[in-house]
């Protein structure tokens, strides 16, 4: 029984690790180590509820734990994020590819958002969740989740204005 449980759990984690890790990374504003810690913590919690959620939606459970922990983490100042006036310099074109540069800018911009706004934006635009599910995941009213997402996007518009170019 325990073996079966462990096998299923391992299979799930191995299959979804990449996606979940990217989600954690976006939720932490690109902090790789913090993202790993957060994901580990969420997956450990998943292990103890695996018999209950295995047949339903284990990924939704992990997403909820991740998002809530990320939204809380800034209040605890776990990774000591320090807001700065100017975004870090964009790397030169020869240093890294354009995709990496874009990703770096995106993560830097996300890191400047308040954690709840960041979580709402990520859940809505990366996970493509409707407002209701964003609210449920964050454990707040729908209006609050909508407000967080809107404010976060508005802020990202400022920060990423030169990255997301106007289209013709």
């Amino acid at each position: 029984m325990e073996q079966t449980r462990a096998g299923e759990y391992d299979a799930f984690v191995a299959a979804r690790w990449s996606v979940l890790f990217h989600l954690a990374r976006l939720l932490t504003g690109g902090d790789r180590h913090r993202a790993e810690d957060l994901l580990q913590e969420s997956l450990v919690k998943l292990w103890f509820v695996w018999p209950k959620v295995a047949d339903e939606a284990p990924e939704a459970y992990v997403r909820k734990v991740l998002a809530r922990a990320a939204a809380r983490s800034a209040r605890r100042r776990w990774w000591g994020e320090r807001p700065v006036e100017e975004l870090p310099e964009v790397a030169a074109a020869g240093d890294m590819s354009a995709a990496v540069a874009e990703r770096s800018r995106l993560e830097a911009a996300l890191a400047r958002l308040p954690p709840r706004q960041r979580a709402a934006v990520v859940l809505r635009y990366y996970q493509d969740l409707p407002d209701r599910q964003v609210a449920e995941t964050l454990g707040c009213p729908v209006g609050t989740a909508r407000s967080h997402a809107a404010r976060g996007v508005a802020r990202l518009r400022e920060l990423l204005a030169d990255v997301i170019e106007p289209v013709g």
Binding site: E102, R103, I164
Partner: peptide, 23 residues
């Protein structure tokens, strides 16, 4: 458009990560 581009950028920024023995 901005939101579409933002969503696209979020998906595109994903780099492959493998669940290794260390994890």
């Amino acid at each position: 458009v901005f939101e579409s581009r933002l969503a696209e950028l979020m998906h595109a920024s994903r780099e492959p990560a493998r669940f290794g023995p260390r994890h």
